[in-house]
């Protein structure tokens, strides 16, 4: 049986910066981001992979940080909501969510925005159906999703028009 250490030390690349971090080995990426790196923009709603609130991008793909063991993340490129804006200038998705009702209570917003970013990185002009499919792993209890779809469409348009 392999010995279980109290802490593991790792270098995680988060939002383009290498972060030296030491954490209990049972921790998921979600726990390390929130508790050890103070990146509380990433939320949690179930911790069992059933809601999408904790979605972050790992190597560009939206993953659930509540199911991703932090020890598996060394050497991978992790992007969270905190890394999306350029200085004080919001990413078009962030601006659109704020302007078009995509965010009400704001709790699902980080996961939604990160998931939408991965979609728009691959598909600059997704149909409403594609947006609905891509966001099907993110529950929202406030909006009824419609203003989220509209926010993503608005941001896609802004991005296509070179607003970033």
């Amino acid at each position: 049986m392999s010995a279980v250490p109290d802490r593991v030390h790792a270098t995680l690349r988060v939002n383009g910066e290498d972060q030296q971090v030491s954490f209990a080995p049972y921790k998921t990426l979600l726990e390390v981001l929130r508790e050890d790196l103070n990146l509380t923009g990433t939320k949690h709603g179930c911790e069992l992979g059933e809601c999408g609130a904790c979605a972050v991008l790992v190597d560009g793909e939206p993953l659930l940080s509540c199911l991703e063991l932090a020890v598996q993340c060394e050497g991978r490129d992790i992007q969270t909501i905190e890394g999306l804006a350029k200085g004080t200038e919001l990413h078009p998705l962030q601006a659109a969510f704020a302007d078009h009702g995509g965010s009400q209570c704001g709790y699902c917003t980080s996961g939604m925005v990160m998931t939408a970013k991965a979609l728009l990185d691959k598909e600059p002009a997704p149909s409403r159906e594609r947006i609905r499919e891509a966001l099907a792993g993110n529950l929202c209890r406030c909006t009824g999703y419609q203003q989220i779809w509209e926010s993503v469409e608005s941001a896609a348009k802004a991005l296509r028009e070179g607003k970033r």
């Binding site: 049986m1 392999s2 010995a3 279980v4 593991v8 209990a24 080995p25 049972y26 921790k27 998921t28 979600l30 726990e31 949690h44 179930c46 911790e47 069992l48 063991l69 020890v71 598996q72």
Partner: peptide, 28 residues
């Protein structure tokens, strides 16, 4: 927050290596 229990961690690079670890550690 729901959390994982404590566990040991192995990360082999090949199937053979993984099979060897499994054989050594048994069902645990």
């Amino acid at each position: 927050m729901m959390r994982m229990p404590w566990f040991g961690w192995q990360s082999p690079a090949t199937i053979a290596e993984a099979a060897k670890i499994l054989a050594g550690e048994g069902p645990q």
